[in-house]
Every structure is written in C-alpha cells, then in structure tokens.
Write a protein that binds this DNA or RNA. Structure first.
Length: 420
RNA sequence: GUGGACGUAGCUCAGUCGGUAGAGCGCAGGAUUGUGAUUCCUGUGGUCGUGGGUUCGAUCCCCAUCGUCCACCCCA
C-alpha cells in the first residue's frame, strides 16, 4: 500500500460490497434471539481493567498480554473489552437486572492484541448471549438449540458440536490435584508451554496441540470420572435433549475453555473450513462469576460467536447480495433535471418501500443508462424532454426483456408497488 | 511473542540476470448527438509499500521498518 494513512493492524474496514453479509448474519441472529425471548443490551466498549482481570482470570493469555489497556486522565486503568460476558454481568449487577431470570444478548466489536491471522483480528465482532438465574440443564440446551437453529437459517452446515463438562468448583479442584500429580510425573516429556501451565492452569494442558503432550494427555485421568452425581445428571440431560432434538454432537473430554470462569457445561461449534481458527461459536456455564463480581450468587450460561468467521463461511458458501435497488431515475435536459427530485419525492411518498436512486450530475442518456445498469436497479425510470411534455415517465426493464413503456404518475406508482 | 511466504495501476497479476514498467478487468469517451448490459475503437491509468545502504544508475541486490497472508501460540 502506498498510502501513509492506513487502518491499524488487524482492524479492518467493512466495505459496502460486503455489508449485505453482515446484515444477513445480524438480522437472522436478531430474529432468532427474539424468537427465544432474549433482550438486547448495549454496554460500553471500555471498562475498568480490573473487571476483566477478575472475570477472565489473571493468568490467562487474554489478560496477561492481549488487552488494550491504558490509563485515563484520572490515572485509572481502563481496557477495551476483549470479550463481552464480563461487561454484560457488570451491567446486569449494576442495574439490578438479576432479581429475576434474564435472557440477554449483545453484539459489537471486541479487542485483543494478537498476531492477526485468518479468522483472527485485533478488532473483531461477536454476538454474545447470556442467560442468568437459571440453573437447570434445560437452559444450557436452549442455548445450543438456538445456535443450531441459527446455522440452519443461515444455510450453514458442516459444523460439528463438541461438548464437555468441567464439573463444579470443588470437583474441578479435586481433579486438578490428580491431574497435576499425573502430569508432573511426566514432566520431562511435556512441551515448554504445557510445563509452564502445569501449576497455573493445568486443565489447559488437556487441549494442547503438541503431539507428544497429547500422547501423555491420552493417559491422564479423566475429568468425567470426577463428576459428582448432580453434575453428571445435568450433563446427561443436555446430551439427552440434543439427542431428542436431532442435533449431532461429540463429547470431547479434553475440551476446556480459555477463560477461567467456566464450570460444568462447555461447548464449541467448530468448522474445518477456516484453517486454524476453526471455532465459530463457543460458550458454557459460569455459575460463580456473578458472585465473584460482587453480585448475589446467580447461575449463568452463555456463549459468543465470531461474526467475521461466520461471514467468511457465508462467502465460501457463495452467498451473494440481492440487487439493492428497485429503480434508477434518469433525467436528461435542464427542465427534466429540475423536475426529477420532485418526481422522486412523490414516488417515495406513494411507494414507501421503494428503493429509488436518482441520477445526479447530468449527462447524456447513454451515460445515465450506464449508471442505471451498474446500480443494479431493476428498472430505469426515464424523464426526458418528450416525457415531460407528455406528462409521462418512461419505464425500462434493465434485467429482463420487455418494451419500454410510458406511464402516468399514478400508473407508475401502482406499477412500482406491484412490479413484475 | 516465535517461524515462514509475500507487498508492482482501483482489482487480479506478469516483468526487468540492475538501465525509472506491461496485460486483463475496471474507469472515461466514441462507433449510435434519446437508451444500459453484448461487440469494436480510442483514451485514462503507477512516488514498483516506506526509509536507508551498495552502485554511474535500484522496482530488482542488502538492511531496517510498516503491512498482508499462513502456521505456532491463543481464541470467537
């Protein structure tokens, strides 16, 4: 690029030619979420840094090295949000929303200082969904079914669903001890990263990609065996529900998530079509987080999906946008040009849904028709000297065969209301 | 943060074993002074990412830097 001014690394402009795909995902998601009774919430992009430290976890990569943090003029440390759950929980506590069950969703940009890669950006967009105050497995199931419906409506297939249960806090603690003991006995065979995590975040070693570490992990004690009766039943009921709903899934006992606040259910929707960043949607239960952030103990489940990743999949699937315009108004000659704006206004009054672009800048019939064609409009509306004299508007089909016709205003309005 | 590939026209790319660059598409105009998309003709196109070094001379070689892409890591 020869320009000296350019967008910040890993942060991308979304250009008009691609915006239709964003609308498609956003509108479909909004429609699905409304259908399940979820309400949208919007929170600031910036929060006190401490909020993320206390929720995501001090020793996670996100908090340790990926946050955009800065001091404001008061000397308070603030951060661009790296994810949405923490803000959502903070807002819910702050406004007393948690006195009753709440189903909330949000969307917007998130920021993480990572090395950009396919499907991974420094500013990226998520839609997140959170359900508060509901402890039963039915709500975990509802969230997963909701996502499955969304994929269906978007025409996306080929995802696989992986689920796991991390157990309650005490179950996990007991397992953690055993896992550390096991891993420590094989310490000499672990890769450096896993060795570092052995005592800080041993569960993360389970989903290491390192081949040799994976071999060790294969022989590790299973988290599933450490689940208590209640946790196990909770998990089984989700699996049963998925079976009954006909949603295929795979229990992956090595699925853990990178954020500290998860307990019990975790799940991921994964695709093989995006290279290394295959997780399209992920989430889980976080029953302890609300209390941890100063609220009353409140069970909660949620997930987030990456919009850039979904949109790239839609592009791969060959999604194209609809022709955006119904009509393009061609006006040649001074009197016609003077009359065109008023004609356009009257048409918009008469046909509120009409998508009409009026030519601007004058020019010959030829050049205006070229514009009309490129605009993608279905019809050209023609206003020239002759039409003006006769009090009619020419209507020409740009996308199909058909004679150019001359219609009076009322006829034209009727035609544009019910074209074709 | 680590490793690798790559930055040439608005876009996709070619090219110069070092002598300041081409194609296709696009865009503008014309063939048709009231009709687009097809066809034909003409025109428009670039500080060869940026900065420095070597050289008589650098888009090409060297170094740095910024950016893109891929993988690791991590995650949506």
């Amino acid at each position: 690029m020869s320009k000296h001014l350019q967008a910040i690394r890993g942060m991308h402009d979304i250009l008009p030619e691609r915006i239709a795909l964003w609308h498609c995902v956003e509108d479909t998601a909004r429609q699905v979420l409304a259908g399940y009774g979820y309400a949208e919430i919007r929170t600031p992009l910036v929060e006190v840094t401490d909020l993320f430290k206390r929720s995501i976890g001090e020793v996670t990569d996100i908090v340790e090295k990926e946050m955009y943090s800065f001091d404001d003029r008061n000397g308070d440390s603030l951060s661009l949000r790296p994810e949405g759950t923490a803000s959502c929980v903070r807002a819910a506590i702050e406004h007393g929303l948690l006195v009753q069950p709440q189903r909330l969703w949000y969307r917007g940009p998130m920021f993480r200082y990572e090395r950009p890669q396919r499907g991974r950006y420094r500013q990226f967009h998520q839609i997140g969904v959170e359900a508060f105050g509901l402890a039963g497995p039915d709500i975990d199931l509802e969230l997963i079914l909701l996502t499955a419906r969304l994929w269906r409506l978007l025409g996306l297939s080929g995802f696989r669903l992986e689920i796991n249960s991390l157990g309650d806090a005490d179950e996990r603690l007991a397992y953690r001890e055993q896992l550390i003991a096991y891993l420590a006995s094989h310490a000499d065979q672990l890769d450096a990263d896993s060795l570092k995590r052995l005592h800080t975040n041993p569960l993360r070693v389970l989903d290491s990609k390192h081949p040799q570490t994976q071999q060790i992990v294969a022989g590790a004690p299973s988290l599933m065996d450490h689940l208590g009766e209640e946790t196990r039943t909770h998990f089984e009921r989700i699996c049963r529900g998925l079976d009954d709903a006909g949603v295929a899934y795979r229990v992956n006992p090595r699925l853990v998530r990178g954020l500290d606040y998860y307990n019990r259910t975790v799940f991921e929707w994964i695709t093989d079509d995006l290279g290394a960043q295959g997780t399209v949607c992920a989430g889980g239960r976080y029953d302890g987080l609300v209390e941890q952030l100063g609220g009353r103990s409140t069970p909660a489940v949620g997930f987030a999906m990456g919009l850039e990743r979904l949109i790239e999949l839609l592009e791969l699937a060959g999604h194209t946008s609809e022709p955006p315009l119904d009509a393009y108004l061609v006006a040649v000659g001074e009197p016609a040009q003077a009359a065109a704006p008023l004609l356009a206004e009257r048409l918009r009054d008469a046909v509120p849904a009409l998508r009409l672009l009026t030519h601007s800048g004058g020019g010959s019939f030829k050049s205006q028709f070229k514009r009309a064609d490129k605009s993608g409009a279905r019809y050209a509306l023609v206003l020239g000297e002759t039409e003006l004299e006769r009090g009619v508007i020419g209507v020409k089909h740009l996308r199909e065969e058909g004679e150019q016709r001359e219609l009076g205003f009322d006829e034209l309005a009727a035609f544009l209301r019910m074209p074709g």
